[in-house]
Design a binder for these strands. Structure first.
Lengths: 124, 124, 124, 124
DNA sequence: GTGGTCTAGACCACG
DNA sequence: GTGGTCTAGACCACC
């Protein structure tokens, strides 16, 4: 379900969190679906439960999941996160665009990259 | 010349390095122009010389500058870095684009962001 | 009669208890009226009977209801709880007021909030 | 500087955080002033450094302080938190007011409590 | 069994 | 010395 890349310099909990966000945004995990328990996922990934706990807390705080103590963690309704998620993605995009502009990348190149991704569909 | 943002979570040497790259790519620093000495810049920014040293080493390793021992650090010829810089910017852009796509951002929005940046010109 | 919010971080028994207090204080449940049986309410809310039991015990201990073993649970006479309830509400209010004061909230704002609630009437 | 109440049921990190917020909002800690280091405060309070770390992270995330890695934690400029802090205090106040209203507390009593606090000044 | 908190102790990057 | 991350192991409240 999730693979950890130990060469990645980012903290483990962030990696795990991001992967889960991907699954949620992709729709691989539906609203109100139960996520693996903290301990289970920790064992699966051979990682300390605290690390998973931290990833989950952060996801909850960002509105991607909600926690019912004693029951588990569940994915939130998209309303809770879609807006924030989109604005975050948008500002990341603007930053990348200015980077591209300053690097001297041609507008046509940007357009072709754009077409490739928006036509190819979900190829991740 | 350079301002340090202490609230930025990235390491200082990285911040300094990025600012210098900006100046180089923008052409504010021309090829073969001499950069400030490690000690001078360190004093200017009230920062440990080690920090500047590290920033310079990294820039050198990425090909943006070259070092002549005993003489100082100088801006490299664009040939040494332009290609790498562009491909890095391009892959960052692609990543941001897929992120935007998966977040459900409309193609038109991407285009408008694109226009805004590519028309506005170098205002940074 | 009662709705449970599973996203609420408080324990279920507390949530249920608070809702019941609301009904009692509002007068929706009159003194000496019989409350639903533990098992019935548990089934209604699809919740473990222990949870309801615990809510009832707490209400009893706070004087809002009384239990006749073998017969059921009944709403207490307001004399048993009104004073405690009021003093609790009052000290909570004072705490909130000092919080507001320290946050720099203007006296007029407090007054307008006060008017809004005390004029609007019982609309909850 | 801070006292921990072990009878309080809230988590330690929350208690510590709240006390610090109090000091910051009161002005006892000025903007850009350095807070005690994680380890120091942990020793002072005979508490695990992780606990303090968590308190600090939360304060940072709420905008009350900012962290410079390798240097320490510093209190933020009031602009970062005043607005959020006020709105939080305001909604807490409204909740307390409705509670008071429903408990049957007289408007005059509320007014007298209000006067007591807003006239008495900072008596905490 | 589930999440939440806490301790103890360790290692790393940064400056 | 400073914050940040991680592990190991423990205890608690809730359901």
């Amino acid at each position: 379900m999730i693979l950890i890349d130990y060469r990645d310099k980012r903290p483990l909990y962030e990696q795990v969190g991001e992967k889960l966000i991907g699954l949620i945004v992709n729709g691989a995990l539906s609203p109100d679906e139960k996520l693996p328990s903290v301990r289970n996922l920790a064992m699966d990934l051979s990682v300390n439960p605290n690390t998973i706990q931290r990833a989950y807390s952060q996801l909850e705080q960002e509105g991607y999941i909600y926690t019912v103590s004693g029951r588990g963690n569940f994915v939130s309704n998209p309303d809770s996160w879609r807006k924030d998620h989109m604005s975050a993605a948008l500002s990341a995009l603007e930053e990348a665009l200015t980077g591209a502009y300053e690097a001297g990348i041609d507008k046509d190149q940007v357009l072709s990259a754009l077409e490739k991704i928006y036509k190819g569909g979900r190829n991740k």
